[in-house]
């Protein structure tokens, strides 16, 4: 199979209702490599085009556990091994744990939050200043009040003619071939 010379076919819709219907139809039709471009997240569209797990919670859990345990053991090391000091009668050993809880908590949250943001950006492949879909005329309204559905050429079912016919059946405003 030769790789088609385009990125995919992009259909433009007027309303959130239309894109929801279109995404469902495309999903039922068996397309996988597709993406919708909407000014705001629409749950049903997301379910149709991006059914897999996001992967974010996993990294957050790792970040949180690493942060909390790192914070706790840093304090334990500093206050009981490296430089044990009896301050205000708080024992310089494990029984002084209550005073280590606040920092443990904070460092856990800090790393978990960083994990959330970094995994969001990295898993989404951002920053990405150039992307083929930006070539579509009128695409700047995808962030404002227009709704786009793009079936990508990498999809096994993708066929320039038949996919275009399918998209046409969804009654979009227009269909564009996306240059790679």
């Amino acid at each position: 199979m030769t790789r088609p010379a385009i990125y995919g076919l992009m259909a433009e819709f007027d309303s959130a209702e239309a894109i929801t219907k279109a995404a469902h139809r495309a999903h039922e039709e068996g397309y996988h490599d597709m993406d919708a471009y909407t000014p705001f997240p629409i749950e049903e569209v997301i379910e149709a085009v991006s059914p897999r797990n996001t992967g974010v919670p996993f990294f957050v859990l790792i970040g949180g556990v690493l942060g909390a345990s790192g914070g706790f053991f840093m304090q334990m090391y500093a206050m009981t091994i490296d430089y044990p000091l009896n301050i205000g009668g708080r024992p310089p050993n494990i029984t002084g744990w209550p005073s280590f809880i606040p920092i443990t908590f904070e460092s856990g949250i800090l790393l978990a939050a960083f994990a959330a943001v970094i995994s969001l950006i990295a898993l989404n492949g951002l920053p990405m200043p150039y992307h083929p879909v930006f070539n579509v005329p009128g695409f700047e309204r995808a962030s404002q009040d227009r709704f786009f559905l793009c079936i990508e050429a990498t999809d096994t079912k993708f066929d320039r003619r038949r996919t275009r016919e399918f998209l046409q059946s969804l009654q979009p405003r227009q269909i564009t071939e996306v240059e790679p």
Binding site: G88, G89, R90, P98, S99, I101
Partner: peptide, 12 residues
């Protein structure tokens, strides 16, 4: 529960 404990534990 921890709030009460840490305050009274520290106050001693």
């Amino acid at each position: 529960s921890f709030a009460q404990y840490v305050i009274q534990w520290s106050g001693d």
